[in-house]
Design a protein around this nucleic acid. Sequence first.
DNA 1: CTACACGATTAGAGCGCTCCAACAAATAGA
DNA 2: TCTATTTGTTGGAGCGCTCTAATCGTGTAG
Lengths: 335, 335
Amino acid sequence: MTRPTMEDVARRAGVSRALVSLVMRGSPKVSEQRRAAVLRAAEDLGYSPHAMARSLASRTSTVLGVMVSDLHNAFFAEIVDGLDAVARAEGFELIINTGGRSAARERRALDSLLSFRPAGLALLGPVVPSAAIAGAANQAPVVLVARSSRLSTVDTVNDDGEMGSGLAVDHLISLGHKRITHFDGGEGSQSAPRRKGYLLAMQRHGLPADVVRSEYTDTAGAKAVRHLIDRGGELPTALVTANDFNAVGAISALEEAGLRVPADVSVVGYDNTSLAALRHVSLTTIDQPRNEIGRLAAEALLQRVRAQRAEPKRHLLNPSLVIRSTTAKPPPPPN
Amino acid sequence: MTRPTMEDVARRAGVSRALVSLVMRGSPKVSEQRRAAVLRAAEDLGYSPHAMARSLASRTSTVLGVMVSDLHNAFFAEIVDGLDAVARAEGFELIINTGGRSAARERRALDSLLSFRPAGLALLGPVVPSAAIAGAANQAPVVLVARSSRLSTVDTVNDDGEMGSGLAVDHLISLGHKRITHFDGGEGSQSAPRRKGYLLAMQRHGLPADVVRSEYTDTAGAKAVRHLIDRGGELPTALVTANDFNAVGAISALEEAGLRVPADVSVVGYDNTSLAALRHVSLTTIDQPRNEIGRLAAEALLQRVRAQRAEPKRHLLNPSLVIRSTTAKPPPPPN
DNA sequence: CTACACGATTAGAGCGCTCCAACAAATAGA
DNA sequence: TCTATTTGTTGGAGCGCTCTAATCGTGTAG
């Protein structure tokens, strides 16, 4: 089980350890003849360099630490996918752990990642206090995804939630809706800008805003609908929901209450998850370019790693409206 | 940016480097007084041990390599989640990369993981040839998920697809169904045992089997339904589909064709993804314990790492039936 | 008062590699 | 011919840590 080292390769090829090192790193200043000899010896022995020893000696790292608040969430999984793609293309490796939406656990996860002295750190939807992030940013370049920050040492990649909700509202209004309610994402990340976008858009059109506190789950969406019905008064003709899950829960509850979507009530989701695209659901929603987010995060990190940039970068990606079958003109007013 | 080392802590605490090392590893043979001094010094300096240097010096690793054929797939993401949970609880870290369903890329991914000399390797749904797996297994303990192997050096964790389909068929038959069609998963992994389980169960009950080639997507499910309708003849009263996505696609197509689920046709999915649980979908399906799969994989690995076991372990997990709202008694025969 | 054991501490070698300065050999310039 | 350069190669120090064996005090028994 004990693998061959550079020493072994050097001995077999009849050269010094340093020469083997040069060959392994693809240095141009090695004669073809020696290079071939070294490569052969390595091949024979099944040698491959020890990444950690290399990292230690060179005082550099090819590891990017990734902390995912929740891998369960397909949204983050796709971002990791994007990160992985560019990281690997650039010769970096991802080391991942999850924070489980608990600040304490995230702290530990962060420490654990830092103990590998990674070249950079990507935090996906972290909930740790800003101070912890600042601390981490002192040790390695940090990029934040789905969380904003004013720290000048960290980069951020976000979708413009304010704009996204605005798109949803504009779409509904252009269909003729006037009573539009927002189900918000509660404490969830990005909940605030989405709410703000809704409020601003309603105000812009001179319509009364109505926000119901909710969460990023389908049960919460259903609950919000029942709340709407229970509180009495006129029902809205359209819903701008916290995310796709919330939307789907809302749709179910609406249908259970005898209301048709979109004939009676239009519903817009957020995220454009694979769920929304299912023909059975066919949800009008706001798309965030997830893979793109991952790529940009990785690129931002690599730029810092290579010291190509010191000023913070704030990516704010434009979401887009995806119109499917859950929005339509409002029903004619009952008279 | 240059972080303090053990040397720095030692100097500040007025002790030797070795003593700091002992404290950091929680050795009992250190006087309380010194321990406190060291801990204080470390705290003051913001010191934390360098995982790679530690690994190199101790000739041990706390890293588990994970190769995911496709992180996009929520199924694997949840397994990684399970892996992560037990790995972290045991003080191990995950280093992840993806193979992108290409044997060549998987090979490279594998090499890259091995260059970190991980304590063990988990391969999720790998497509590389068996020889490559055997090669990897020579360097580190390997556990395979969603892929079987005869290699005595690797462990495997799979769900019993044959049994799962059997459960679906039995359930439908107990409801009174006789014409049950299977939409299979085509070339997809685990497609074969699921098909086999269907065939065996039908045979066991003396019913004629009917398999329609399909895939693990919702569009494929819809297409299979249209194929069923187009080919004429009597429609089945129940569908055992390739997976949940396939099921949802099939349901949509059925409804579009004016058939009600489950009144006219019952549908069973496979995997019990979060999709199936949505109230809007409420799909009867076969549950694979994904988190459990991840846990078992991690445990199998750790047992090998600790040399607690040398014989291969073959986990075959029992799937279970989750009854929701897409299955019911068949319609009375039209006479 | 010496011998001995025992717990606490430390020096030093070494993990597998990179990097630097030094060097030998071949080539160029004067 | 002799001194510069260039090109290819090498020894050795050192990255931050662990581990073994040796050392240093103490307390205790003889």
